[in-house]
Amino acid sequence: MLLNYNNFTTEINKIGFFENKAKIAVGVSGGPDSIVLAFLLSKFAKIKGYTVIALIVNHNLRLESSQEAKEVSDYLTRNKINNKVLSWRRKKNKKASQEKARNARFEILHNYCKNNNIIHLFLGHHFDDNLETFILRKIAGSDIEGLNSMNSEAIFEKVRILRPMLNCTKESIIRFAKKNNLQWIKDPSNENMSYSRSKIRYEIENTLKFKKIAKKDFENKKLIYIDYLSMINRHLSYLITKITNNKVEINKNYFCKLPKGVAIKILVILTKYVHNNSIRIKNRKIDLINTGLSKKNSNFRTHSTIFASISNKIDIYPIK
């Protein structure tokens, strides 16, 4: 997708609803992707009458981290984009991998949004990022859920995670940044070949044949995932016998005939439903509950949810 303001707003409109005078946040690392997103969102917010804040996380992984965070903050301030620097307080002398730093950054951004009643968090992930994630997960042996990689919209503990640039390539983002004279910081860790993601990124950027094969495989898996979701939804329509805001009743006989992977996915979906998507779920625990539900009439529970297997039905509801 060619990146420009009109195409950007089209992608946001696909994502959907924003309340009047919405408060939105955008994670800014200082790289070209997040800088471009911050500038596009700032323009979008002004036109719509929304409030936007750019959140910069100082991960303290390198000596230059604090200075870089300040430079990004100063640059955004000069361009009249409201921003705030957040810091990752990690234990001294404790090494952090790229993945740990990435997860910590997301947690800091997410917690800020929750604590400040912001329900829309924008992230600057693009097509190449998604392709990298797909390849890494495929190497690791992920199932169809994992291979779906990142989506343009997700809800995590009452915060919408929005990625409107997933159809944009890195090349188109940099082209937009240069055309609009935007400035960004280059993170040297992205070129550190001791990281698997950096190796994959290098191959994508420098080996056309590799990128074409990976892209085709990724797009095929996306189509398969769409069929997979249709199948899950079809089973849900046959399975659910009664539903309220915080309780679901399902047909036990039908449920027990489902393949294990499908049954676990359905339990995860229904558990999230009764908690209004505001819960983290450990698949290992759900796996054990699934095994128990098919064997006997009893109550099974996680720390927050009850699964009551009674005669020919299973009730799922939160612990009050």
Rank of each mutant, 00 (worst) to 15 (best):
I119S: 04
Y50W: 08
K80N: 12
I264E: 13
F255H: 06
A140P: 08
R105Y: 01
I35C: 07
N276L: 03
Q98K: 10
I135V: 15
N180F: 14
V52W: 00
L162I: 11
S73G: 05
L239D: 09
I161S: 02
V274H: 06
I161Q: 06
V268E: 12
N13M: 03
N251C: 02
A101P: 00
I24F: 05
N290F: 09
R280I: 11
I266Q: 05
K178P: 11
I24V: 13
R62E: 15
E64S: 15
S194C: 05
S73Y: 08
L293W: 09
M150A: 00
K23P: 10
E132L: 01
L162W: 02
L121H: 04
S304I: 01
H235I: 07
F122N: 09
T207L: 13
K138N: 14
Y50R: 02
N276T: 04
N312R: 03
L229C: 08
R89C: 03
I185S: 07
R301A: 01
I135L: 12
N206Y: 09
L61Y: 12
G124M: 10
F156V: 07
L63I: 14
L109C: 04
K265T: 14
N79K: 03
W184I: 11
V26S: 08
K14A: 00
L37T: 13
N4G: 05
I279Y: 09
N151H: 00
A177S: 15
F106G: 05
I316M: 07
R201T: 09
I266Y: 04
Y273D: 04
D315R: 13
I15T: 02
K70W: 02
S294E: 04
S189W: 01
R301F: 00
F106P: 11
G146Q: 02
F307C: 06
N245F: 03
Y273W: 04
S149Q: 01
E145Y: 01
H126I: 06
R89H: 10
L109A: 01
I306Y: 09
N6T: 15
A263M: 11
F176L: 06
K247Y: 00
L61C: 15
G141S: 12
S73H: 12
Y238G: 10
A308C: 13
D315Q: 10
T305P: 00
T169M: 02
N58I: 08
K23V: 03
N115E: 14
I155Q: 00
I47H: 09
L229H: 05
Q67W: 04
K320P: 08
F8A: 10
F127E: 01
I240L: 05
E191P: 12
G141W: 12
K320W: 09
K92P: 05
L131A: 06
L76W: 07
S294I: 05
A54G: 13
E203M: 14
N220F: 13
M165W: 04
K94Q: 08
C113W: 03
T241A: 03
R280L: 15
G31H: 04
A140H: 14
K272A: 10
S196Y: 02
